[in-house]
Amino acid sequence: MATKAVCVLKGDGPVQGIINFEQKESNGPVKVWGSIKGLTEGLHGFHVHEFGDNTAGCTSAGPHFNPLSRKHGGPKDEERHVGDLGNVTADKDGVADVSIEDSVISLSGDHCIIGRTLVVHEKADDLGKGGNEESTKTGNAGSRLACGVIGIAQ
């Protein structure tokens, strides 16, 4: 089992970053940390998408990683996509320092995120509470600013 993974985020604009993942036990939580720069100040949706395909930019990554066919939600919700990591918060300089621990994603097994795409979005994720159909699919997080395929790390 891989215990570490990394993702280099890039987009068409100024947004870029490096996100690290570490899972010490196969059924334990995954620590997610790193930094994203070039964002507007505020909240930005942060999700693992189904495919590791960036051939047409971030759009070819498909929908959120959702092997259990659930509705979109927040990272602490029972009803959520596996890939729903909530929001990252950018400061006035456009930098989001990421520090998350998640017990639904994994670096092995059915919820493995390796080979899938991590995406940072234009807007805040409403965590499935926006009151419309799009909220239950995407959290109304808007366009995909930057993305990268999650790969095994040393």
Rank of each mutant, 00 (worst) to 15 (best):
Q23L: 00
H64E: 02
E101R: 10
N66I: 06
E79F: 15
E122C: 08
D84V: 05
G17M: 01
G148I: 02
A56P: 06
G109D: 06
H121S: 13
E79H: 14
E122A: 13
G86S: 01
A2I: 09
A2P: 15
L118T: 00
G139C: 14
G148R: 01
E22Q: 07
V32E: 04
D102C: 12
S135P: 01
G139V: 07
I36Q: 00
V8T: 11
V15G: 05
G11L: 02
I113H: 01
H49V: 02
S103Y: 09
D126G: 10
G130P: 14
T89K: 06
V48Y: 02
N87R: 04
I152F: 03
V120K: 00
D102L: 06
D93N: 12
D84Q: 04
D125V: 09
N66V: 06
T117F: 10
I100M: 11
N140Y: 06
G57E: 05
I100N: 01
I113G: 02
A61S: 14
G11Y: 01
I150A: 00
C58I: 12
E25C: 05
T59L: 13
G109W: 00
S106V: 03
L85C: 00
D97I: 05
V104C: 13
A141D: 07
R70N: 12
D84G: 05
T59I: 08
T136L: 15
V15C: 08
G57C: 14
N132Q: 13
S35E: 12
G38Q: 03
V15F: 04
E22D: 09
G86I: 00
A90R: 00
W33I: 07
K37V: 09
W33T: 15
G17L: 02
G45L: 02
Q23W: 01
E78L: 13
V119P: 02
N140W: 05
V6D: 09
K71D: 05
I100H: 06
L9T: 00
G38S: 03
S60N: 09
W33H: 04
K31F: 06
G130H: 09
D84K: 05
H121G: 14
L145N: 10
K76H: 13
L39G: 01
V98N: 02
S60E: 06
E50D: 08
K92G: 12
E133K: 05
P75I: 06
E122N: 09
V8L: 14
G130K: 15
A153I: 09
L127G: 12
K123Q: 14
N54Y: 11
T138V: 09
V95L: 12
P29T: 15
L43M: 13
D12M: 02
H111N: 14
L107S: 02
A141C: 15
E79R: 08
G17C: 11
A61G: 10
A96R: 00
D110S: 13
D53H: 14
S108M: 06
D12S: 13
D102K: 01
P63Q: 06
T89G: 11
G11T: 04
G130D: 09
L43V: 15
T136S: 14
C58A: 11
G86H: 01
D102H: 05
F46K: 03
G83Q: 08
G83M: 07
I114S: 01
F65Q: 07
I36V: 09
G148S: 01
T59M: 06
I150V: 10
D110N: 05
T40E: 09
L145V: 13
I19Y: 03
I105R: 02
V98W: 03
V104I: 15
Q16H: 13
E134D: 08
